[in-house]
Amino acid sequence: MTTEPGNCTASELLCVMSARALEDGQVVFAGVGIPLLAATLAQRMHAPGVTILFEGGTIGPHVVPGELPPTTNEQRCTRKANMLVSITEVLLLLQRGYVDVGFMGGAQIDQYGNLNSSFIGSADDPSVRLPGTGGGNDIASLTKMIVAMPQEKRRFVEKVDFVTSPGYLTGGTSRVDSGLVAGGMYRVVTDLAVLGFDDGTGRMKVLDLHPGVTAEQVQENTGFELSIGPDVGVTELPTDEELAALRHLDPDKVYIA
């Protein structure tokens, strides 16, 4: 049963919608935060055969409800895992081609899906020094990407201040020309819509709106012009089952605050 609008928070909506972007049987390299929680939710719902990889070196864990890890490097990430390897080995799985989807959050994204988690303002004299790439650059360089983040004008900018994790760079063939021959941005899931990328130009476009959201609303919360076709779809609201499973996983609201 789908829930009533307003029965879930923006981050719960984001979590459910991004969980749905994963398919059963996929190998998913998940970052900390919403991706970790959403990949775990997908395992509990429609995609029990999702294999999660964490950059701390975990292959195929089942995170325990109520014991969400604070980063992807603690023992909580290893619960019911199939195998533990070194950080370098788990990242090399991306390069070797074992991973279907990289799944990350983002601080700032641009029209070509480039992500910035390093600097706000200029890199030489930033107004904010952010924590940096972590595995982000490697994941975005080496596999197909799903990004989950709230849709806000200050986060969706025409050009990121700094390309930490590459999307389609300056569009067209620029990504492949730079030497990144595999992978690329696939979906951006927000609290308003599901977005994809144009095959030729590499620019972001709206695929589906969440129920009750208008195309204008999405555009208003985006710092560049989005292509929104007449055939744009509508997602389904989270179901009661999805929300119950999500709240069971994160009862302390560590990630779904």
Partner: peptide, 13 residues
């Protein structure tokens, strides 16, 4: 040798 970092500003710095 590796296949990431290319094209990014991380490598550029």
């Amino acid at each position: 040798p590796m296949r990431s970092m290319m094209g990014s500003d991380v490598a550029g710095r």
